[in-house]
Each structure stands twice: as structure tokens, then as C-alpha cells.
Design a protein around this nucleic acid. Sequence first.
DNA 1: CATGCGATATAAAACGTTTCCAAATGGAAA
DNA 2: TTTCCATTTGGAAACGTTTTATATCGCATG
Lengths: 337, 337
Amino acid sequence: MNSNNVTIYDVAREASVSMATVSRVVNGNPNVKPTTRKKVQDAIDRLGYRPNAVARGLASKKTTTVGVIVPDISNIFFADLARGIEDVATMYKYNIILGNSDSSRDKEVHLLNTLLGKQVDGIIFMGGRLHEDLVEEFKKSPVPIVLAATLNQGYDLPAVNIDYEQAAYDATKMLIDHGHDRIGFITGPLEQQINGEKKFAGYRRALEDSGLPFHEQDMILGNYTYASGLEAMQKMLERDDCPKAIFAGTDEMALGVIHAIQDAGYSVPDDFEVVGHDNTRLATMIRPKLTTVVQPMYDIGAVAMRLLTKILNSEEIEEKNVVLPHRIERRDSLRQD
Amino acid sequence: MNSNNVTIYDVAREASVSMATVSRVVNGNPNVKPTTRKKVQDAIDRLGYRPNAVARGLASKKTTTVGVIVPDISNIFFADLARGIEDVATMYKYNIILGNSDSSRDKEVHLLNTLLGKQVDGIIFMGGRLHEDLVEEFKKSPVPIVLAATLNQGYDLPAVNIDYEQAAYDATKMLIDHGHDRIGFITGPLEQQINGEKKFAGYRRALEDSGLPFHEQDMILGNYTYASGLEAMQKMLERDDCPKAIFAGTDEMALGVIHAIQDAGYSVPDDFEVVGHDNTRLATMIRPKLTTVVQPMYDIGAVAMRLLTKILNSEEIEEKNVVLPHRIERRDSLRQD
DNA sequence: CATGCGATATAAAACGTTTCCAAATGGAAA
DNA sequence: TTTCCATTTGGAAACGTTTTATATCGCATG
């Protein structure tokens, strides 16, 4: 009783109707007499018919599948985002094909082409930087593309983000307002726009606004990982003029920073204050709990997918460049006011 | 110059050959004269032809796509597993359709049917427990299914796991060998086989082997999260006869356990010793660093996918029930010997 | 110079739907 | 009754490949 290989034609014969009618029933087309509909439905149940989505995709040119390109799904940040995407996708009856790019230009381009070959109805892209080649490919895409937690560049794609510049400003400002005149800034590679153009800019603006100079050596670049945060802070601690306030580009780095400080025998927040970024689950899994910029990853994914469905349904779109609100979640890595 | 909607037929005309020949070239079939192959390849490049995988899937009944059913991709554990799957999938030119089940029977069944409707070539399933209905569906599946980090039940599917019973035994035994006669056991719901049948059994066997009695109250069930680990340990600490050694079912719970202990003013490992399970990245993101059972998530995913490719290629399979090795990574949450 | 054979190439039939257009049906109005 | 529409159904052509059976080509062989 393998429910396999029973086709719409078999159902049609079983129900003594044409396959067109079966198709209408399956697709909920209203132009079917109720008695006929029942007859067909019974045949479907009896035969255990399951529509072949591939054939359907070929005939209708819609696959109800969207592609998701992500640097690395094993990264908690992107995993959360992906979950947001998938939940909304499910809500709208889409499935997602997921691919990891490792932020490699070649893999991104290759993945994109594979997905287009599979006739996905749309694509959600995440990546640190939009290489030119990739943008060229994007321009040629026959299906809509939405960026999630990824800044546009040279081509005006729909995108969902927070205001990274302002967020970095807020975090830095908060530390300055706590009486620090030097703020350490430990973040990811500047090639990635979010760091190089946004967080860095916000950091500097906050310094300037408060009349503080920018010291090159107060900024250390890592690669987002715990280890790189730990290492960066260790390096910073070696200096006599080590900043007593640190803004870390990700929570994971912030944990490394805190541990480096503690390993050196200092206290957070008494000796050092630390602010992270993203508010991943990690933020509460450390003592002291981490004060951090809330970037709603799940929501970014969910909104990006919703935006994509709107585009796919040709619904009216008020704003294709969505900026979600951010805030700072105050926890114990910052002293009480 | 939209590379879209140029079909194999267009290429055939452009190259003055039949579409069958183009098909051969695209698929690397050797029965094509080199000059013809070149001619066709040129036409392909000139036109920017990209084969339509949907049409191909319909004609060949292969989609080079596999379905992956996972409880929750935002869980670091499954995210790692998924990454292993995807890497190997890419290696063998497959793509993956990813779906979250939240371990709900209904979602699992629904997802499975959706995937089968999409004509995936195979499925990798992860889930805490195989409900009967689901097993029934599995039996009817026209494509192979492989379990990853999921125990078989009532139907002999290919599966990739570690020896959870033995791992729990090893962890418990290690704590006993450190001089403890009561071992706290904090894990997830017993309905999930891995806990109820394996880890629990290993824990008890270790106790028995050492002539220790099993105390009901030394076991607390949570839901895998940090918060539930924290809470469980807090509850345990209220007791006078609180065990001084804890085996936690996941690293995340172990972190909660450690923090609960520290919050109460005790030291790990001086006052309490803790062993976790999984060796997720979290294990090194805490002080003291966590001693934990190494479950190679990435490898489990990778091996599961590799196993699936073997089945799909009808390669010979030495053992369809793969048990990967585990070990305990000793870190600072355990006292030096 | 015919014959035969391997190597290549072609034509056409699947594959399982959707969808357009035309046909049948069934009442209501005339 | 007819006539006419609206509703419901059916037929058949797409959709873009793979694949099978068949044809053609080129060339060595007898």
C-alpha cells in the first residue's frame, strides 16, 4: 500500500472525473460542485494520493520553496535568524532550502545559482559583505531577493536590519556616561560592513560627541568567536592605559572579554564594565550577566521572510528597507547607576 | 540578458543539435563527440543557460534534494548537526530542505509528508522520540530515511548515534571514582528515549556497579535549557543531603547547574564537581571550564548524510546502525586527580 | 564496392501537474 | 417548450527535462 506513484490520473479514473477536476479539488478551486468535490476527495483518501510537487512546480512555475543563504548555520546568531525565517515560511506554506556559504564569495555565487536552478520562488540572503560579483548575480536573478541582517551595497535590495550605527553609539555612550573616558572596542573584521561602516562609525561618533579622542589601540579586531574575544582582551590588559570599559561586537566575544578580565584577577563590573551585542542566549549564561545590545535575530528572520512573501504575492510594500528597533538590555556587567 | 527561461531547446537550436545531445553534454555523458560537446558548451555559455532542476526532477525522478527534520535549528546542538549534514550533502551535490518540528508529532508527520510531496530523494530525521504514527509513516516512505542522534524504535531504520548508555555510565562512574557516593542527575524528560532509556540506565548501572543505591530525589528532570538546569540545581541545593557531584544531561543545563552552585556561594570544583554532556561550544565558555561527554554532533550529522548517500547510490553498507565513539573531555569543573 | 559495426545523433515519448478553452449541464426566464 | 446564462466539467496543450528506441555517419573490412 505504498502511497507512492498514484497520480492525479489514477484519482481521476477512480472518481470518474477528469484530471482537471481533481486538480481543482486539490487546489481548493471553488468551481466544483460539492458532490463532485466529495467524490474526488474520497478517491484521494482511498488511494492515498499525494500531489507531486515537482510536477506541480513545472506546470505552475512556482515551487513554494525559498532559498536561504547563510554564512554558517552552526552559529547561534544565524540559527536563530533561520528559525525566524522558517517559522514564517511554514506559516505561508513555503519550505526552505538552506545553504551555508562560510561567507565565501565563490560559495555564495555557486549556492545562488544552484538555488535558482532549483527554481526557488525567492531567496533570503545573509552575509557580511556583498561582493561585486554577487551583486551582479543578484541583478540577474529572476526571483526576488531579501537581505537579512545584511547591509545593502550598490544595489537597492529589500533588507531587514537594525540601526547598527545607532546601536553602537548607544552602547558606547552608555559606557561613557558611566564615567569612562576610554572605551575599548573589540569587534569583527572591518571589511564586513556592519563593523567597518556601522558599528565603528557609531563608536567614533559617541566618542566625538563626548569630546573624547579616538585611540587606534583601543580597537582590536577579532573574528566573532569567544577565543578571539578572550585573546583581544588579554592583549589589551597588557597595556598600562587599558580601557576600563569594553564594547564587544558580539556576545560571544563579550564572554571572552569578561573571562579574560576575570582570569587576570579583576572584577566585572567593579573594575571593568562590559557591553555586548546581539543578546543571544549566551548573555544570561555568564556571571555577571551581560549587558548587551538587543538585536532581535528571530524577528529579523521572520520579518525578512514576511517581506519576501509580500513581494511574492505582489502585496503593497510600505518600506522595502526595514529597520527594526534595538535597545540595550541592562544586566550585571554594568554597574548600577 | 536575463538568463532566465532559456531552455534546453534554445540551446539545441543555437548549437544546431538535438536537445538530447544538449542533455548529454550537460550531464557529462561521454557519448558525445568532442567537437559537438564544444559547440554545445559554447551555445550554453552564450545563452547563459541554466538547467531547470524541476523539469529534470520530473523526468528523472531524482531531485538531488534531501529533507532534514530537526526539532529546533536554533538549538546549538541541532545547528551543529545540521551543519555536518549540509557539508556532506554539498559534497555529494545534494541540497537540503530544512524543517523544524518542535518535537511535535503532528508537525513531524506533516513535515514528512510535505517533504515526500516535494520528492526529496531521502530524509534525515532527528527527534527525541519516535511516535507510533510517525513510524507508520516512515514505513510507507518511498525514499530512505536515516536517523541522526535519534534512537530507533519498533522499526529498524539506519541510524547514527553514540552509545548514550555507556557515556552516561562513564560520566557517572568518573564522579563516583572521585569519591562521591551520591551523584545528582539532572537531565531532560524521560519520555525521550535518550534520557529515559539510555542516560538514565547508564547512570543507574554506574551506581549499581559501585554498590551505591539509587535515590529518587537525586534525579531532577528539566527541559535541556540553562534556566531549567539552574532551577533544578537550586532545588537540589535546598536539601541537606544534596549530592556534591552532578551529571547534567546537556552542557547548557550544566552551565545552569554551575551558576546555581556559585550563586549559592560554593565553589566548583572544590565544593561541587560537575560533568556535562555534548561538548558544545558552551563547555569552554564558562569558568571553571566544563568537563563533559563529547558527543560529536557535527560528525553524527556528517556520517548520517554520508550513510544516506550510500543508500541512495546502492553502495554496500557494512553497518546501518552506526555507533560513533564518545569520550569525556576533562576540564576544570572536575578536580585534578 | 558492398557490408557491417561502433560511435554519435535524433525524434519522440514519458514524467505529473496546471491551465486555457471549449463543451456540457441545469435552471430560470420568456 | 425554448432560449440563455451561469455553473461545472472535460480535453488537451503546455512546462523543460531525461531516456529509449531508432537512425545516421564514418570508416575499416572483406
